[in-house]
Structures are given as C-alpha cells and as structure tokens.
Design a binder for these strands. Structure first.
Length: 586
RNA sequence: GGCCCUAUCGUCUAACGGUUAGGACGAAAGCUUCUCAAGCUUUAAAUCAGAGUUCGAUUCUCUGUAGGGUCACCA
C-alpha cells in the first residue's frame, strides 16, 4: 500500500468524506459574496499549475527545503535541519532550496534575511534556489519569500472557499482565546470545532452584515475530520504512526494582512515548489493530520515527512534526579544562535561535523576511517537518524570535534583562517599576526609539521590569543610583570645562577638533545635532580628536579607555566628576543 | 487535561529475540629525556519500574513513572 493511499484507506474516513462533501455543497457561499472577500484579481490553481510545472528529475531525487523565519538570527536547530535536508537532496542529485517564511509580518524583519543567507553560506550549506548572498533570487519556482506570494495563497484560499472548504470567521483573537480557556475549564479539548465553530455555518446574511461593518476576519479551513478517527501516517524518522484526524477549523488566512498561516503556506509552497521530502522539527508532528487534509482539499499529493527531534539543553533536575531537558531557545540560550560559533571562531566544518554526528552517529566511525575525506561524501540515512526525543547539546564534544579538525590543519591554513577571524574579533592579535607573518606561522607550526597531527589545544580561534599571544612582544609586555611571583618556587640565587649559566651556554643551533643536556647540567650544578624519577626516589637529596629549572626559563620567556615544547619555542623566538625577555625580569 | 512521541553508562549513541551489553566525548589512574596539549595502556560507568509472551527480552505486549511535543488571528 502506498503512503498516500494508506492515509485515506480508512473506510470510515471515506464515508465521512462523502457525507461531508454534501454538507460542503450546502455551505458554498454565493459568488458575489466570495468576490467581496477576494476583490482582487488572483491566479487560479490551473494557472499556477502551468506556471510551476513538475520538476524533471530522476525518480529517486529528493527535493528538500529549509524555511526559516527572518527574526534576526539563525537558530542552531534550523541549521541542523537545513544541513540534513541539503545532504539528502544532494546525495540523490535532487534540489535543495531556501524559502523565507515571513508570513508573520509582525515578527519578521526583512533586513535579517541576509543573516540566514550568510549563515548557510558560512557553514557551506549550498542552496540551489532561493535568496543568494548577493541579495538576488535564483530558481524558477519563486518568489521564494512568502510575503511575496500573497496572491498565490489568496488564489488558492479563494478556490477553497468556492468549493465550500473554507469560510470567513469574524471572531476576535480574545474571543477565541477565552473560548479555549472555557473549554479547558469544562474539561473539553480546546479548539475551534463542533459547536464552538461559531462561523462555520453562518448564514450569508450574517456574513454580509459583518462585512458591511468592516469587522476584521480570518478565513478558516472547514475540517471534515473526526477526532475519533485515526489515520495512519508514515514518518521517515518516527516510523508508522496513528494520529487522530484533525477536526479543528484552523485559520488559514488573515484577511487583514492577506497572508496565510504556516499550514496553508506549507501546503501551497511545497506543492508548487515540488518538494518531495519535508524534514522539519517534530513540533510539527501533531499538525500532520491538518496538513494532509489541506493537501487533499487543494487536490495536491502530499510530500513525505520526516520529523526531527529538536536539539535540547540541560535545564536543571527534578526531585528524582532526572535531568530536565528543554529545547534550546533563541531568547535564553546563546548557543542557539548559529552565528555564535562564527564569533568564537569554530571552523564551520567542526559545527557541521558535530551536527552530522548527532544526525547519524555512524558519522564518527566513518570519519575515523576516512580522516581526509570531505564530509559531503558521507551518506546520511534516515534509518540512522536519531529517533531520540532530542539530543542534549554538548559543547565539550563540539570542542573535541573541532580540536581534531584543527590539529590536522597546516600552520599556513591556520594562519590564513585564524587571521581572517582575528581581523573581525581580535584586532590586536590580527595586527601582530600580520606584522610578522612568517614569525606567526612558525609559532603556529610548533609541534605541527612533521608530526602525524598537530597540537590539539585549539578548539576555536578565540583560543589563539592565549595559545600564541605571548610570543608577540606588546602582548607579552602586559603579562611579564607577573613572572616574579610565579618564579617564587625557587630562590633568587638559584634563579640568577640558572639564568647566568643558561645565557653563557645557550646556542640557538643546538639540537633538542644538546639543549636539554645543557639544562640538565645546570640542574645538576645547582643541586637539582637530572630526572623526575631520580627525584622521586630520593626527594631529600635534591632541591628539586630538572623540570623546575626548565620552568624557570619557561616562565621567563612566556610568562606561563604551561606551554608547548620549550626548545621549539626558543628557536622560534630567536636569540635576541630570548635574551631580552630573560634580562627584562625586574 | 486530551492527543502524540521518547526512555541503554554523566552525555551522544551501537546491539536479526541469544553479545562478557560495544564505541565516542567526558572522568580517573599509569607510561612518556622539561611543563602542557596530545599519544599509548588501563579503570569506573547504563538497559526507568512492574507484570506478561518466550527455552531465552535492551529488543515484543500491557500498566505505571519520567521527560518532550502539541492543542494560537507564531512559525
């Protein structure tokens, strides 16, 4: 049984539809009244069919889309479903497009559309159709912004009214709201249905009367569903489900703005734009029965649906110690904003690979087996797509993914990308990096070139300052006065004498072994153990161990107690800077 | 409240009805000619509870519990 037929196979539903259709006949409004509701010239469904022909694609190609609202930021969850949709489309030689869903004109800010476009661009999620970075649209199924499709929606809503499948409703929002509260108080299911659907069967006269008074109204869908009936729905991620039919006469159009609600816009757009697979947040799952009704009423074939669990975050615990999860929210959680990761300087690939890992946990194994393959080669599957009720966002894991990626980059690459980031978010560091680019590159090359992979201490470019900043004199100057205190673990005499011997014997051409032998000699001469083991065996015999002597130089040169290999650092700094820093101890 | 979804280490997750319940992140311990970051070697860590079906249940069924979603003139 096909997906579509299974939905409507239920006998009971069938009978209902027939009897309801008759009911619809009785409720078709006179054409003169319909013209009053829709006075403008509108496209008919037939005209639209001609304008937006079926896409010519291989049979198994998927057409997917992402439909964010332009509210000022790109939500991480939106990025997640965009990424998944894009991968499925391109994995099957299909089409992925961007549609701006701005039917809520109160909340939408047109100028923020480019935040969305830039985000998709930043994370390398290529769109085939829709708004581009230059601000133009591409693709033949546009316009791709819903507010520009007003006439299309109105044309179809008009056709629904003409078929008796939609009607005007003059209730105010306050009225519907208090009606809902009353229903809840009475223990009833809230909603505009049954006897609560005041305007469903209103007479022509009543409607005319309100229209004359210029009462604001909306158009509602006349649902023929029965809540007691179940329909079978096959979801790509959640499997086969049984959902109650929708019996609520949902609003599909606001007459005042002329714009539709999500539901109608979804049905209309995804039909005419040829979407085959709708992947969206699972908060839409319970609207599926309505959407299927809408598709049927409009005479469209519905797409396949896949409902993704939202990315969540931990939000405290209950008395029993269960973790309370909640969806990451734009308002409360900075990590919900996809562009935060740009600001912090995570490589876009890191975020993408973290999200791919949430989508298909087998990605991790694939990445291990194919460390150098572009992640677009990874084949996403619906079967593996998480069916959990929403993974918790894990910044620590993201850091690990990111460190791994950066550890495989060359110093040259890190320099280029890191500098670009610093120019935007850390100007002082950028200045230093540019002043002496070869110095900066050799810093970044410490313990990198020639190793199977580089140091794993940078997870994002915001770490760059603490990891390399001290190499640059102006930045070092700000921390150098702390050195004295840090050096208080040795006596002044030992410190001075270590410095003295060091300066006498240091040769920048020494190999690492030669250099370290000299450090050991200094240690021994001052009464420190040459090795940590030795010291551990007879701690009373020594003042300390060779590590303490190395620490003196480390602190003098870098102002820090933890740094990469000292020998490499000295080589990169050069003799002149080294001597200067050692002598600058107050 | 109605309806729907979900339940495996702290987290993300694997396991045709038969595994010693596996991996990754994180944690802990040890190793490493200097401190880190790594790397390597170990360790701790889970099937929500209770019934049922079955020779055998993490897996199937039911009940309970917990969490999530939805029930807008938001998407």
């Amino acid at each position: 049984m096909s997906y579509f037929s299974s939905i409507f196979a239920n006998n009971k539903t069938q009978t209902n539809n027939e009897s309801m259709s008759q009911e619809n006949q009785n409720h078709i409004l006179p054409q003169t009244l319909i013209e009053k509701l829709f006075p403008n010239k509108l496209p008919t469904p037939e005209e639209l069919n001609e304008k937006y022909p079926k896409r010519e694609l291989p049979p198994d190609a998927m057409v997917t889309r992402v439909g964010p609202s332009p509210t000022g930021l790109m939500h991480l969850g939106g990025l997640y479903s965009a990424l998944i949709s894009e991968r499925f489309a391109h994995q099957t030689n299909g089409v992925f497009f961007l549609r701006i869903e701005d039917t809520d004109i109160e909340r939408s800010r047109a100028e923020t559309t480019d935040v969305i476009v830039k985000s998709l661009n930043h994370f390398h999620i290529p769109t085939d159709e829709g708004m581009t970075i230059s601000g133009d649209e591409k693709g033949k199924y546009g316009p791709y912004t819903q507010s520009a499709r007003k006439d299309i929606y109105q044309g179809l809503v008009k056709s629904l009214v003409e078929k008796g499948k939609a009607y005007p409703c003059f209730c105010t929002s306050e009225e519907t709201k208090s009606m809902g509260e009353e229903q809840v108080k009475e223990g009833l299911r809230p909603g505009y249905y049954g006897k609560w659907a005041k305007w469903r069967d209103a007479s022509v006269e009543e409607i005319e009367k309100e229209l004359e008074k210029n009462t604001p109204y909306v158009i509602r869908f006349r649902s023929e569903g029965n809540f007691e009936n179940k329909i079978k729905v096959s979801d790509l991620l959640k499997g086969d489900l049984e959902l109650s039919e929708n019996d609520i006469d949902r609003k599909i159009l606001t007459a005042a703005t002329g714009l539709p609600t999500y539901h109608l816009a979804h049905a209309v757009d995804d039909h005419y734009m040829g979407t085959t697979h709708v992947l969206r947040g699972d908060e839409w799952l319970s609207s599926v029965p309505l959407h299927l009704q809408l598709f049927e009423a409009l005479g469209f074939t519905p797409p396949r649906y896949g409902h993704l669990a939202p990315i969540q975050k931990e939000d405290g615990m209950n008395e029993k110690g269960d973790i309370i999860k909640r969806k990451i929210s734009k308002r409360k959680d900075p990590e919900a904003n996809a562009m935060l990761y740009e600001e912090l300087g995570y490589p876009p690939r890191a975020v993408v690979e973290y999200l791919l890992n949430l989508a298909n946990s087998s990605f991790e194994d694939w990445r291990k087996a194919n460390p150098d393959t572009d992640n677009s080669e990874f084949q996403l599957t619906f079967e593996k797509l998480s069916r959990s009720n929403g993974p918790l966002f894990d910044m620590v894991k993201l850091n690990d993914v990111s460190k791994e990626i950066i550890s495989r980059m060359t110093a040259e690459e890190i320099y280029a990308v890191g500098l670009e980031w610093a120019k935007k978010y850390d100007e002082r560091l950028a200045l230093e990096m540019e002043k002496d680019s070869s110095y900066a590159k050799s810093i970044l090359n410490i313990e990198r070139e020639g190793e199977s992979r580089g140091r794993k201490d940078i997870s994002k470019w915001a770490d760059l300052n603490s990891e390399m900043g001290y190499f640059f004199d102006p930045i070092f100057d700000e921390i150098k006065d702390n050195r004295e205190e840090t050096l208080s673990f040795v006596t002044k005499e030992d410190c001075d004498s270590a410095i003295k011997s060091f300066l006498e014997t240091y040769n920048e051409n020494d190999t690492k072994d030669e250099w370290f032998a000299k450090v050991k000699t200094i240690a021994r001469d001052l009464g420190y153990a040459e090795g940590a083991k030795q010291f551990k065996l007879e701690p009373t015999k020594y003042k300390g161990q060779v590590g303490d002597i190395a620490k003196i130089f480390r602190v003098l040169l870098t102002g820090k107690t933890n740094t990469p290999d000292l020998h490499s650092i000295m080589k990169v700094m050069g003799r002149e800077r080294l001597v200067q820093r050692i002598n600058s101890l107050a």
